[in-house]
Design a binder for these strands. Structure first.
Lengths: 129, 129
DNA sequence: GTAAGGCTTCCACTAACTGGAAGGTCAAGG
DNA sequence: CCTTGACCTTCCAGTTAGTGGAAGCCTTAC
């Protein structure tokens, strides 16, 4: 069992955020200690990690709720799970393509910058033209 | 010259957001029409697109301001431009790796779902275990 | 010339945190 | 046993980045 601090560290999230997720019933601790401390198990930590990754890429908290439910709702039809997953995958692929573009733009910028003190990155011209 | 609606469409951003960016002086229209309409040139539209891409991947508005200034501030030292760019590239690569993980998780989920009405995606077990 | 659609400002609201105060808990050291 | 420091609690206020809607002006098309 993890206290909130340990769970937050394991999931690479701020403690405040983990507490917030508990408040909104997105990822709730499996129990409370006598003193009222939130206690998280391995499964909850995995959920937190999954949520962090999903949030990082623009899925709203409500979408995360839906994605999480893919894993949790055993009554959901397999077909429906598959459909939602495929839809999200498409979005992710679009995001990846854009991220690649952003990456390439910055890489090109970095490359063409000579790294010395001359303030004449060629890309500046191409952009402001 | 683009009116705000055309600029927003070209940049794939909501009109409201473009207006907001003007309000906070992130991307300002190059001029106003007699009637007070915001007028955007090609350069501003490119900036809007750049901002949208950057925002999509977790750069804050203030970070976008910095990234934009890489393109605009001709007095900035090339070395400094390069350093900021390289730093952001590292972040982007990290984001891409996580996005890939998320993608693979969902792809695996979709694959292992049989697509019929049986609610027994194997990944559910692996997750909740 | 009037109706539709786009533009303006302003103000209120939302989502998703984030910071800080006031105070309880727990393990370690003196 | 007691205290000190790190960690936990709730509650409330503030922030960021939009977003929705009202009231009203502008432009184009029939």
């Amino acid at each position: 069992m993890y206290n909130i601090g340990a769970a937050a560290e394991a999931a690479e999230l701020p403690v405040k955020t983990v507490r917030y997720y508990a408040d909104i019933d997105l990822v709730t601790p499996s129990e409370r200690s006598q003193a009222g401390y939130r206690q998280y198990g391995e499964a909850e930590v995995k959920k937190l990690i999954f949520v962090r990754r999903s949030r990082t890429f623009g899925f709203s908290v409500d979408e995360c709720r839906e994605l999480l439910s893919l894993y949790q709702d055993r009554n959901r039809e397999s077909r429906q799970v598959k459909q939602i997953a495929l839809q999200r995958i498409e979005e992710i692929e679009h995001k990846m393509a854009e991220l690649q573009t952003l990456h390439d733009e910055l890489a090109h910028l970095a490359e063409t910058c000579r790294g010395d003190s001359r303030p004449d990155c060629p890309i500046i011209k191409s952009f402001s033209a």
